[in-house]
Nucleic acid binder design. Sequence first.
DNA 1: ACATTTGCCTGACTTTAGTCAGGTAAATGT
DNA 2: ACATTTACCTGACTAAAGTCAGGCAAATGT
Lengths: 291, 291
Amino acid sequence: MSADQITRIRDFSRAVAVEVGALEDSFLDRGRSLGAARVLNAIGIGYKNLSALRSFLQLDSGLLSRLLRGLEDEGLIETTTHPMDRRSRVSSLTEKGKQEFDLYEALSNERAAGILARHKDAPRLLQAMDVVTITLSRKDIVFEEVDYASAPAQHCLTAFADELSTRLNLTFDLKQSGDPELAQMKPPFGTFLVARLQGRPLGCVGVKGSGGPCAEIKRMWIAPSARGLGLARSMMTAAEEAARRLGIQTLRLDTNSTLFEAVSLYQNMGWHQIERFNADPYPDLFFEKHL
Amino acid sequence: MSADQITRIRDFSRAVAVEVGALEDSFLDRGRSLGAARVLNAIGIGYKNLSALRSFLQLDSGLLSRLLRGLEDEGLIETTTHPMDRRSRVSSLTEKGKQEFDLYEALSNERAAGILARHKDAPRLLQAMDVVTITLSRKDIVFEEVDYASAPAQHCLTAFADELSTRLNLTFDLKQSGDPELAQMKPPFGTFLVARLQGRPLGCVGVKGSGGPCAEIKRMWIAPSARGLGLARSMMTAAEEAARRLGIQTLRLDTNSTLFEAVSLYQNMGWHQIERFNADPYPDLFFEKHL
DNA sequence: ACATTTGCCTGACTTTAGTCAGGTAAATGT
DNA sequence: ACATTTACCTGACTAAAGTCAGGCAAATGT
């Protein structure tokens, strides 16, 4: 744990504290105490159960109770008992509360836009922020099976195609609507997985089947900001599990030897090299794995 | 100002608030109120003048006064009147206060080390943090004329040599102690500039003269984390000004055509291409500027 | 010279945050 | 069934943070 690294972390925290603090301060701009504003916003973003609110905001039961009553007196929230457990209570925004919440959102957006405006000539800032965001909250990344045609899937595929196009100096379009692969990457033949962090798509992988015992891994991609976190490995694992659930016994894939990191990942995960199984010009390495 | 960018800023702020908050919390670990701890630390890092303290910590005059008195009662600080203006007062740490300050520093380092430990398998995190830190606080970057042999200069030159070595697959050593260039890059012949952010060196440039009206720009380098901020331009400007102060009338430099960003910067700043003036194998483009 | 401003202190006050010991009603364990 | 636990509320309290008016001494303006 070098002193230099610690200094860099502390410099970082000092530098962002100012900007991030300004964003937090927007919660004070509407004449309400910070505590009350935080509760209102937590309810607005979906923490309705009081116990969830308490643990999210790290509030004492008594304190939360009082803040809630204050918001109720203002007519911003309503609290009812939980239908399953009548000890528990559930809060929700009233119409007036929603308006107030929207005002807080607008304020926060304004502050964020202010940060952006102050640094709009620093194109690398947002990318670097993404890397930090994703790394710090990578425990929250989830894998979802979605339709190949759904918005998050299309987001990944567009980004993937753009990346391939610039890297190989060719034009790729991986998501034509009439694509015959479309049917092969949804159940019962195959599936399509995306990795998401709080809704934002960070990567994808497709399992393309034909009803038989053999299927193919396609469209494996990780967003640049999410690389270096071992996401590829967990996404491959998730894809293999999904394939197993579909009754698939053997998976194949093609890749290019210049992608050495991917190649060593496959070898590391128990894939073994096989003979060429298609005539595509781009791939020059072929792998297989028995599930 | 796209909604997507605003979302990314807000996600970033949410993600770092947790970690940064934990670092701030270390101020509570020694049984003192947050306000008192912040004042003690602000004095420790150099804010001694009360008016400077007030604006740095955004404290009400009365509040600061009381916090200071509390610290005085603990024997941690001493306050004297300002020698120039006897209305103003200046605080400084006592021996006991210094010890207490060091304990806070140790706690903060510990927390930072904790963050590092939690993410040590994310090699890109620190780099990304550096980009964020430097971009957000780039207004604080200063240029200093230093000796070619000084620590910050050597830091830059080592990094520069390493970068050249890996990029060109050769071995460079730009800072041999017996280097004849050493004398030519200090007054009265030339100079050596480093760009620093709170002490950390971010880039360098040398002006190598021989006493005559003509000098050469050498060793121009910007730390990877500090690129994309226009630092190269301001560093070149600073170098030209320093050269002018030394009585130099013409500057020359050599570069390589693959460094297209540098080349377009030179053209943009009024340099014009000239004939080859040395026999080095690496450069293939030569520029000159009359000051 | 004298009014004004600046820099800081003091006292009196309010608000916010946070803690803790009960208390009630519903759910759960055995 | 009855003791225990859980989920929340209430009241009483303290500590910390923040506000404001006034005051004093030194500096400054004219």
